[in-house]
Write a protein that binds this DNA or RNA. Structure first.
Lengths: 139, 139
DNA sequence: AACAACTATTGACGTCACCAATTATTGCTC
DNA sequence: GAGCAATAATTGGTGACGTCAATAGTTGTT
């Protein structure tokens, strides 16, 4: 009898939950949650982003972005700068402290991934990574 | 600059969210959510389960199971039967209506997985499935 | 000049995860 | 076999979160 566990879509859902929990328990000592961390990492790769951009790219509601950026700003990890082109928009950028924070949690994120993928050898991890990237990169 | 998207753990988290959303939008016409569906599919593979067992196997809080089983019972898809061994426990079983419901949503679940894995060919899907199963099957 | 579209923000509502406490029952132990 | 810790289901509370509607300020279009 094929249970739901044999369904790849459901497996992804389940493992996504587990992965998120691992990240969150890991981040909790810093007072942040996975959502904050995702924003920081996105900013690290983009050198400034409109809140609207964060919303669409990360899949969080615009109103959620407001709170997340508020939190990060309160901790001094990001700043809101006025957009030169459009006075409605604000550009969120990492501060130096934000970069330092990311450096400090770098190997920690790797450790989480390491725990999660413990049953796989390096070659298999690379295969999985490649497949997931292909799945993730569709509109 | 390696963004968070290059991190397998985060990829899993992200794809898990997407998968869950697909499942939920698909199930919403039936009035159930993914959590209910997961319970039904687990029951289909076990011919009766204690609520405690559902809690540990599916990773939901015992108090959450109460509500889920209440909902399913209200729809006539499951029943609570007294355990012959232990009067504290109740055994949750699928009704005939529950089985019929699962049959009706069978190919729908496959369609969700199909949408999700659109970029992969059949061989790659099997590889992914096998890797995810290995990752999922750790304590 | 008028109006539709867009950005950030606020607020409300329902769902959900997480934790503590309760009741009924069981198993252990002395 | 009496007392007591452990367990199963349940209830309730709290905080986080997704979603939706509404608003103020700004831009682009016609």
């Amino acid at each position: 009898m094929r249970g739901l566990h044999a369904d790849t879509g459901y497996l992804l859902y389940r493992l996504g939950l587990r992965s998120g929990q691992l990240f969150n328990t890991f981040l909790q000592e810093s007072g942040l949650r996975l959502r904050h961390y995702a924003v920081l990492r996105y900013l690290a790769g983009s050198a400034g982003a409109l809140q609207r951009e964060l919303s669409t790219r990360l899949g969080y509601d615009p109103s959620a972005i407001v709170g997340l950026v508020d939190d990060l700003e309160k901790l001094g990890l990001t700043e809101r700068r006025p957009s030169p082109d459009d006075r409605r928009s604000k550009i969120v950028v990492l501060t130096e402290e934000g970069r330092a924070f990311l450096r400090g949690t770098d190997e920690a994120g790797l450790r989480v991934t390491n725990d999660l993928l413990a049953p796989l050898d390096p070659a298999e991890r690379e295969t999985l990574q490649a497949l997931l990237l292909r799945v993730a990169d569709q509109p």
